[in-house]
Computed example of a mutant assay.
Amino acid sequence: QHDLAKRQMSNFGGMITFQVDDPQSMAAQLAERLRIVHYAFSLGHQRSIVVLLDTAEMMKSTYQLKGEQLQSYRAFAGDGIFRLSIGLEATGDLIQDLDQALRA
């Protein structure tokens, strides 16, 4: 979809999603290890923020999908996806912080 985005936008946003095998464990690891990126549930901030969007929790509170809709969502998100919103910090600092925090 990158080619489409380049045709439609002159600037790109800084929102990234990613998945891991054990999202709950990774969420705890990120909350403990991150020094520059903040582990928080928020948007619209100048600082970089990452948070786990847990599928089970989202189904209880927000979406409440059932049947085929839930199966389709789970096929995409599994047990959850992390949302990373990039802020105004130096690129190298963010890369270094995420690299050290994500390592096993």
Rank of each mutant, 00 (worst) to 15 (best):
A28N: 08
V37D: 08
L43H: 14
V50I: 15
H45L: 15
R47N: 08
A28Y: 02
F41T: 12
S48E: 03
Q46D: 13
Q46I: 12
Q46H: 12
R35P: 02
A31G: 09
S42R: 11
D22F: 01
L52N: 08
Q29N: 07
D21Q: 07
R33I: 01
R35K: 15
Y39I: 04
A28C: 00
G44W: 07
V50T: 08
L43S: 12
G44Q: 05
G44L: 04
I49A: 00
D22A: 08
D21F: 03
S25V: 01
S42F: 09
A40V: 13
I36R: 08
V50N: 05
Q46P: 15
I49M: 10
R35M: 06
Q24A: 06
S48G: 05
F41Y: 14
D21K: 05
I49Y: 05
D21N: 01
Y39F: 10
V51S: 15
G44P: 09
G44R: 02
A31N: 07
S42T: 14
H38R: 15
S42G: 15
I49P: 01
R35D: 10
P23G: 04
H38D: 13
R47K: 10
M26V: 13
A27M: 03
E32I: 01
Q24I: 05
L30R: 00
D22K: 08
A28H: 12
S25R: 06
F41H: 12
S42V: 12
A27Y: 01
R47A: 15
D21I: 02
A27N: 07
D22R: 07
Q24N: 07
R33H: 08
S48V: 07
